[in-house]
Amino acid sequence: MNKPAAITALSALGQETRLDVFRLLVQAGAEGLPAGAIAERLGVVQNTASAHLKLLAQAGLIRSERQGRVVRYMADMTGFRDLLAYLMEDCCNGNPDLCRPVIEAVACHC
Rank of each mutant, 00 (worst) to 15 (best):
M1R: 05
N2P: 07
N2K: 09
K3N: 13
P4M: 01
I7E: 14
A9G: 07
L10D: 05
L10V: 15
S11A: 14
A12V: 01
G14M: 11
G14E: 10
E16S: 08
R18K: 04
R18S: 11
L19I: 00
R23F: 11
L24C: 10
G29H: 02
G29Q: 03
A30T: 05
E31Y: 01
L33R: 09
P34D: 13
P34Q: 02
A37K: 07
I38T: 07
A39S: 08
A39D: 07
R41T: 11
R41E: 11
L42Y: 01
L42G: 08
G43S: 12
V44T: 11
V45C: 07
Q46T: 14
N47C: 13
N47D: 14
T48Y: 05
T48L: 11
A51S: 13
L56P: 06
L56K: 06
Q58G: 14
A59M: 11
L61C: 01
R63I: 12
R63V: 15
R66A: 15
R69I: 08
V70R: 09
V71H: 11
V71G: 00
V71S: 11
Y73I: 06
Y73W: 12
M74S: 13
A75S: 06
M77G: 11
M77K: 12
T78S: 13
F80D: 03
R81S: 15
L84Q: 15
L84Y: 06
L84N: 14
A85E: 02
L87F: 03
E89L: 07
N93A: 15
N95P: 03
P96Y: 10
D97Y: 07
D97R: 07
L98Q: 12
L98G: 03
C99Q: 12
R100T: 10
V102D: 03
V102G: 14
V102C: 12
V102W: 05
I103N: 04
A105L: 13
A107Q: 10
H109G: 09
